[in-house]
Design a binder for these strands. Sequence first.
DNA 1: AAGGAGGAGCTTT
DNA 2: AAAGCTCCTCCTT
Length: 332
Amino acid sequence: MSHPVGSLSEEYGSRMGKAEDSLILLERNRSSEDPWEMVETKPNIEALERGVPGLYFSCYDMLLTEDARWLLKVSDSPATLAIPTNPMENLEAPEQCPIIDSQEQGLSPGLVGQEEERSLEQVQSMVVGEVLKDIETACKLLNITPDATEWNTANVQKWLLWTEHLYRLPHAGKAFQELTGKDLCAMSEEEFRQRSPLCGDTLHAHLDIWKSAAWMKERCSVVETKATGHEELWSEADSSCSGQPIHLWQFLRELLLKPHSYGRCIRWLNKEKGIFKIEDSAHVARLWGLRKNRPAMNYDKLSRSIRQYYKKGIIRKPDVSQRLVYQFVHPV
DNA sequence: AAGGAGGAGCTTT
DNA sequence: AAAGCTCCTCCTT
């Protein structure tokens, strides 16, 4: 079977080939519903309304197909364009999105072949870039390392919770209790299935992708960083790497820093004055809960914590108080 | 119904 | 001890 990622690079062909099977398996198992309310199809639709002749898609969604070449043939199909987006962080600004042009450009047959090859390569490097980026985001959010072999039992549970949450899998954490990342990595797909008949294979596939990503990071992070333009990949300059537990206000700042990923749930109203609005309170609370490993987190509790900042002079209500709008006392 | 203010006791680090 | 978490009451939008 011809897979999009398989021929990506001879260097890590076999490794990625494995991950690629995992990705396809994931697609088969994934619910057709958008697994993450945070990133809806809205941006795609907006893009369409603007008449952008490009495709915005996630690596996972792309791999749904048997062959990435379909991308060259679907630009006249709006239904295909409204692809449910990747749950994590795939919606780049349009200008940063690789755009796959279609035959609308009136290419000659020969050129079409070349273009296809080029586009395919483009797509492939994008797939890898997106996967790495998604994992990086998950790591920051969960405060775990990308290398699964370094996970302790708590990290494993976090990862499980996260993956289950993303893909609406039944909770299987108990079946993997007491297991470290090393244990997990040593387990076969069959062993995964034994522990969790319902989603063991999916979890195993996901872990495989993480393993591949860690492998690739080690092997050719420089190349990939260049190729995908994601300079911040695996960067250390983040609060999640400082050792200290993250503060709520820092976490909110981080979300605000990434409007591409979180703009649908929290955004600046006035960045200069530090005024921001929580657009989706439940979602921000869920993210905070994930970050702090507090499954019972909700907006009621999160907002109580924000209100504690009033006395400390970190966050306040803006002069004209609005629902879900807060202001950093010391904007950067 | 959802959000906001703040008290109070508890937990985690 | 600090920083939240949790639960709660009362109030506002």
